[in-house]
Amino acid sequence: MTNTIEVHGLEVAFGRKSVLRGLDLELAEGSLTALVGRNGAGKTTLFRTLAGELVARAGSVRVLGLDPRRERRKLARAIGWVDERAEWPRWMRVEEHWRFLAPFHPTWDVAEPVRLARVFDVDPRAKLVELSRGERAVALIVAALAHRPRLLLLDEPFGGLDVLARRRVFAALVEHLETAGASALFATHSIADVERAADRVALLVDGRIKLATDLEALRANARRFAVEIAGSVDAWRPPLAATIERRDAREVVVCALENGDEVERSLANDARVMRVEPLGRDLEDLLAASFAEEGSR
């Protein structure tokens, strides 16, 4: 199976401020991957680089086998990039937006946006600027799906959607991926969205992908423990690849996103560890833990 996205050692900076620092990411064909990261982690920067809008200082980027900078136009025809911050003329109605975009995509299906608009209850006659945040996001997603892209880049478009709209949007996304053999990378803060739709999750921390794995594998292998330490907790370090969520007076909360069983065995054999108590491993807990500042990696 070929990768839709292949990124190796990507470095992107704005002036002296480095945003992406040696980022590696692979997105398999047909995958619906959630990109999770804190505010300012570099999610939008990654999307802009993948779409060819930004120049990488170092590293390599291939999207659909194309160099995003050199083959930007060709890539733009094949991807659907939804950015809820995208601005369009104030007079532009939804259907006028479709008519405007259609010539830029040879694969544009005239009937598809009409169908999707009915599914999502989007009024084609409404002006984009008069739609609510959620309605506008849906309208942009409809426009992105209308030309049947091979890759969808969705930069946090779901924030304003209600529950019903989210379900419908994700159902449409999954349907599109299945029927077109396409891939999607969407950025989100919502764990529910990750659990509902994604089959893979990538954690963006400090300009790097800290973890990129199947969601099932994450659920199966990730662990969280409360560890009681004898003596000073400040000097103690967890074994293997584990993240310290927090340190209390005598207790340390540890999170292992991978190899959870091995970490548990290692803790049990640590002479300073007096007690190991498993904690809840909701996806939200796991992801929050991964964003903790301390780490033993």
């Binding site: 733009a76 995208a86 003329p89």
Partner: peptide, 14 residues
């Protein structure tokens, strides 16, 4: 000024 230019430059054209 309106930000539309960014959206336009993302389209499949030089």
């Amino acid at each position: 000024e309106s930000g539309v230019e960014r959206s336009l430059t993302r389209l499949a054209m030089a």
